[in-house]
Nucleic acid binder design. Sequence first.
DNA 1: GAAGAGC
DNA 2: GCTCTTCAACGCGAC
DNA 3: GTCGCG
Length: 319
Amino acid sequence: MGAADETRDGVSLTNLDQPLFDGAGATKRDLVDYLDAVRDRILPGLRDRPLSVVRVRPGQDPFMQKNLPKYTPDWVRRTSVWAEASHRSISYALCDDRRTLLWFANQRAVEYHPTLGRAGHPEHPTQLVLDLDPPPGDSFGAAVAVALLVREALTEAGLAGAVKTSGAKGLHVIVPVADGTTAEDAAAATRALAARTERLDPALATTAFIVEDRGGRVFVDSTRAYGATVVAAYSPRIRPGTPVSYPVDWADLGAVRPADFTVRTVPALVAGRDPWVRALPEPQRLPADLVAEGRTIPVARVQAMHEGKRRAKARREAG
DNA sequence: GAAGAGC
DNA sequence: GCTCTTCAACGCGAC
DNA sequence: GTCGCG
Ligand SMILES: [Mn+2]
Ligand SMILES: [Mn+2]
């Protein structure tokens, strides 16, 4: 163990011997060393994409950071995006190099959530994502079963995807899409694929946006679309043991656990190889019938907001 | 982690 | 100078 | 500005 502070690639790194967060089983140094060790694997997924990060300190709640703080060094690349919610321009980082990654690590940025499209091109995502969220409990096996249903739906549509652990309890299926694919088409295709997955086994998979309506089934989340973010491959997560979102071969899905992949184990697994690059298929054009089907499916989220509003009103009136 | 307020 | 407090998100869209 | 959700 070295000094508590050091400088690396010109970036000051501080308090390296402090715990990363409660239950991390890792120090801030472990985070810095992990990200530096996998930088050539994680940076390609972050490069040129508006970045949100989740930062955390021991004893405190994690918080998501989008807008760069005033004190951010000027060598951090950034892009401005107007936010309707706060009526202001958000300055997003573009994490393109080692120095920026190390600076974020020193900020205790543990999770890295890039957008689906590149800076300046929110209307043209490079991939679509089916996010599989299992119900509470020990349900990773259910997520695996639903991932295989997603694969079936993809194959049926003439598409191919790659799968990775989310680092939490679920899985992400990623489908690279051809240049020129619009966000609208990608979102519609995502909804259609989620609906087809649910249809393949409605007892196992659901597209219900309201938690209460999921009934112990795996939520096939099609809302990772438009400006949404998805945690990057190789990003650590703020979960016990500091797991990492990690690629898995389809054939190996049944043989892994999310906890197999942590900031301690992953550097050795990626030495001399990039399993995410290897797993990702070529960008694909979305079948017209899939997109057309998706256009007929309402956005579950919107329905849920109205239902939520109705239920809240009912609660108030019940006293 | 860093800045600002208050001592 | 020190200690304490505060801050660090978004959008979907009808109502 | 709200609601549910990630
Ligand atoms: Mn998820
Ligand atoms: Mn989700």
